[in-house]
Design a protein around this nucleic acid. Structure first.
Length: 203
DNA sequence: AGCACGATTAACT
DNA sequence: GTTAATCGTGCTC
């Protein structure tokens, strides 16, 4: 299947988050194995006109910082950030240039590079390989070094491939996870999307 | 200059 | 169900 191009990501984070379900996230460094999987869980941040307090881009009075600048830039770029002093989380920028927005990839169903994934997730059973945002970055070997990569470049090492639409009725939504002290209404907004019944959805 | 905490995970009880 | 690990970021003083 072809790679997704910029127009796919140049929409609201909500639309992109929902439609990324069933697409395939791929990482293939030069000369190394392709590691990839179906996207089965996402979360939207800073979609549309809403001032999303949970979004990193809402900090610093909504002005860009060195960390959040990518979310204010053009769509289709990797925003990878470090959390809890341990974990890398992978996002894809959305919206038009100037409007902050991103989609967090929370879970994958592995399809390629299973041997490599098993090695990187040593000691873990297969169902715990990629069922969480920091687990999938480990499995795909994505780190801060990939921050700012253009995911729509024809020869890029990280990309998203088109895929078949999920069966009707399998896409469900609910509140985002791990928002801590984020105030309402953002805390309860149903901006998390996943494929119902999929074994690799987190939690 | 210092500090509290986070878009989490794995290993505990 | 609970908690340690671990550090960059943004906010306060």
């Amino acid at each position: 299947m072809p790679r997704l191009t910029t127009p796919f990501f140049a929409r609201s984070a909500l639309d992109v988050a929902r439609e990324l379900l069933g697409k395939r996230l791929c990482h293939q460094p030069p000369g190394q194995d392709l590691v990839a999987g179906w996207i089965v869980e996402t979360e939207a941040y800073c979609a549309g006109e809403t001032r999303d307090a949970a979004c990193h881009a809402a900090r610093n009075n909504g002005q860009p910082t060195q960390r959040t600048r990518l979310m204010f830039g053009p769509p289709g770029y990797a925003y990878v950030y470090f959390n809890y002093g341990i974990h890398w989380l992978f996002n894809i920028t959305t919206e038009s240039d100037g409007k902050p927005g991103a989609v967090l990839i929370r879970a994958l169903e592995p399809t390629h590079g299973l041997t490599t994934i098993a090695k990187r997730r040593q000691g873990m059973p297969a169902r715990n390989w990629t069922n969480g945002p920091a687990k999938l970055t480990q499995a795909l070997a994505i780190t801060g070094s990939h921050n700012g990569l253009h995911l729509c470049a024809p020869d890029g090492v990280i990309w998203v491939e088109d895929g078949p639409d999920p069966p009707l009725g399998t896409i469900v939504r609910g509140p985002r996870i791990g928002l801590g002290q984020t105030p309402e209404p953002w805390l309860s907004l149903p901006w998390r999307f996943w494929l119902e019944g999929n074994r690799y959805v987190s939690r």
